[in-house]
Nucleic acid binder design. Structure first.
Lengths: 255, 255
DNA sequence: ACTCTAACTTTGTCGGACAAAGGGACAGAA
DNA sequence: TTCTGTCCCTTTGTCCGACAAAGTTAGAGT
């Protein structure tokens, strides 16, 4: 016979966790707004009535979660979590779960197509200008695989931004971060890779300008299929993402 | 005139960060495998030659990132970051960025359709069984909005799982976590909401069983449109996601 | 072989300490 | 006035040592 639920489970979280939770609550429910100062560690010691070491452990948790940062003078502020930083956590997780390039490819096909559709529909003048600027820089470094791969990654971030849909922007980022290093390898290994990549970007900008959804989708598909063909010259799609790719995601996180 | 780049910026990361980075590197590059013990704090003090407080701050960073956990006896282990925990970080970020329900809806339309397509193509017997089990439980609680909403959230997690694409699984989760609380409100407010929801699930399972892609996509669209219609009876799609929704995501994180 | 207890280890927290770096005020130089 | 160097105070990052509570291990006794 089950016992009558006389007692609720009591909260036995360690103190540093409670400190972190308390500050998190205030930020998430909006009482502390992004940019607001949190106060010094000593202030927090007084407010929470715990030791500074405990406060500091709590602060580390929030810092890692992207909810607070230290400014140039190391003072604490609430802040809006940055997508690229959060996404690199996810990229890391995907690597550890040993996802395959096939999964990456399939998901990206969906996400990038959705991005371009949004961009075609809603891109602003400024979005297009950013994309055009990126294209110009890409054309200038078409012979440099590393820099071209970086431009490519930025290009797709800008397309997602142009979609004006931040959920999509965030959803595509983890997979995109894992693509980036392979793009470099492919452009290095496949002679016509660089020019084809830049040409695809040019068509994509054109499609956005003309609000031509069909063309946007078509060229996004081609662009990704190009990646796939290039990749399959190097390795199998069923290979899992290698640990070494994390270096790039780590670099992105610190930025 | 720009100065010749004689010096590189020097690395002045604090000690606790270096500790965290060093351990993270070993985990991510695979030298420490998930499940492996990390050693006691005292061990780490000896190995890194820094104070225990410093070690502990580094550990908090890794713990929050999901790379290590403490087992029942509080000993440290490397572990695979859990999707739902990471996703709740993203949900939190989306709330803070004040994304609109329109963004959520549009992105989910893409992501859930992609999930069902994958599920129709690749769902295993076991996946279908899990879905059927979920459906049975849903039917049993069709009069209870809170429990039905929970079942609905689980259903879509299971569909994504059935797609066998972990990238997709991860990408859809942050948006899905924000959907969940509204589902409850809608089912509460709209009389025929519950039965329609369950009926849609039944059709989806059926589509997966028959490997009928068209039907799967169709019913996913209808299911989401139902949500939208229900939501618009309550509020505008252009409203931003409210802070209160975070409670659910926070609960998910702790699990 | 099993249980119970005592000793040991580990974690979470505390208090205090100090060097390095930043910010602010202030005086003197250009 | 504007700039610069100096002094002082605050804050952070790190260290040391300590202790209670909870978990682990080993040994005693059955």
């Amino acid at each position: 016979m089950p016992v009558a639920p006389l007692f609720r489970p009591i909260d036995v979280a360690p103190a540093y966790q409670k400190v972190a939770d308390a500050i998190e609550r205030e930020i998430v429910n909006g009482r502390i707004k992004p940019g607001d100062p949190i106060g010094t560690e000593h202030d927090l010691v007084r407010q929470f009535g715990v030791n500074r070491s405990t406060i500091r452990e709590g602060i580390r948790v929030l810092e890692e979660g992207g909810l607070i940062r230290r400014d140039s003078s190391r003072r604490l502020h609430a802040c809006l979590p940055r997508y690229s930083k959060l996404a690199s956590r996810l990229s890391r997780a995907l690597v550890l779960h040993e996802v395959t390039f096939r999964e990456l490819y399939e998901a990206s096909m969906t996400l990038e197509v959705a991005s371009i559709e949004g961009a075609v529909e809603r891109a602003s003048e400024e979005n297009v200008a950013e994309l055009a600027d990126n294209l110009a820089r890409s054309e200038a470094v078409v012979g440099n695989p590393a820099m071209l791969a970086e431009c490519d990654a930025e290009f797709h971030v800008l397309v997602a931004k142009a979609s004006q849909n931040r959920v999509l922007q965030l959803a595509r980022e983890p997979a995109a971060q894992l693509f980036y290093p392979t793009t470099e390898m492919i452009v290095t290994g496949v002679a016509e890779g660089g020019p084809r990549l830049v040409a695809a970007h040019r068509h994509l900008i054109d499609a956005i300008r003309r609000r031509d959804r069909e063309a946007g989708v078509l060229w996004t598909r081609r662009h990704l299929q190009d990646w796939r063909r290039g990749f399959e010259k190097i390795a199998s799609l069923d290979r899992s993402v290698e640990h070494m790719y994390m270096e790039h995601a780590q670099a992105a996180r610190r930025r």
